[in-house]
């Protein structure tokens, strides 16, 4: 870590380069503990996919779909907006979007942290299997859909359908919940969990103002079929 700070970041202009070539360059740089700045990402897809640990990558603009997908330890920053599936399937590391992100942010996340400072589209944290997704603004329709583990932390409001068909993931919302999805229930989070959530967001640089945290988990009615609860199933 000390050495890295002494070295200047490598600057690469993405403009006309094939994505595959860029990702190979990024993998080589990070495996040599070399930080990288990518100029002109121009909202293209699959930037910074399957990167190893070893350094940071900053995209100097907006990126397209799947940025930071399958990340294996890199620290990735997007200076502007991101498209769909940001950090999809990440195992470890960090993807931080300074602007807004599209649908399915942190989809199937297994570990690490995805941070969106602005808003996300529909289905943030869909099928999340671990890790933490933090959204500074609002999350869209059906966020947390079928999440199996991990935390989705929302500092703003959540659109309708929140936590639909959850397994064991947990959703924490500071703002207004416009509507719950099937089988989602709101709990008051225990003090110890609030402390944990607030230490996560404080470490990420979000201000610690008083927040009315709500926790959304599975009501567990969809976990086992019970014909007396057929009404719940018929809504599916």
């Amino acid at each position: 870590m000390e050495l890295k700070k002494l070295r200047e970041a490598l600057r690469i202009d993405a403009d006309a380069k094939p994505i595959r070539e860029l990702n190979i360059l990024l993998r080589q740089a990070l495996s040599q503990q070399q930080d990288v700045v990518i100029e002109n990402p121009r909202s293209r897809h699959n930037l910074g996919v399957a990167l190893p640990a070893g350094g940071s990558v900053r995209f100097e603009g907006s990126v397209g779909y799947y940025c930071g997908g399958l990340n294996n330890g890199a620290v990735i920053e997007v200076a502007h907006n991101a498209g769909w599936g940001t950090g999809e399937g990440m195992a470890r590391g960090m993807v931080r979007v300074r602007g807004h992100a599209g649908q399915s942010t942190g989809a199937s996340l297994r570990g690490g942290t995805v941070v969106v400072e602005g808003n996300t589209g529909a289905r943030a944290g869909v099928a999340q299997k671990g890790g933490v997704v933090v959204v500074g603004g609002q999350v869209g329709f059906l966020s947390g859909f079928m999440a199996q583990a991990g935390k989705l932390i929302v500092l703003g409001d959540a659109a309708d359908g929140l936590g639909d068909s959850l397994y064991q993931g947990s959703i924490y919302v500071a703002g207004h919940i416009h509507g719950l999805g099937l089988d989602a229930v709101i709990l008051e989070p225990p003090a110890a969990e609030i402390d944990e959530i607030e230490s996560i967001i404080a470490e990420l640089g979000f201000s610690l103002t008083p927040r009315a945290w709500k926790k959304v988990v599975a009501g567990q009615k969809l976990w086992y079929f019970d014909k007396r609860e057929a009404d719940t199933w018929l809504k599916v």
Partner: peptide
């Protein structure tokens, strides 16, 4: 307007 942002750009 388009399906993807890179088209708008």
């Amino acid at each position: 307007m388009a399906t993807e942002e890179q088209s708008l750009r």
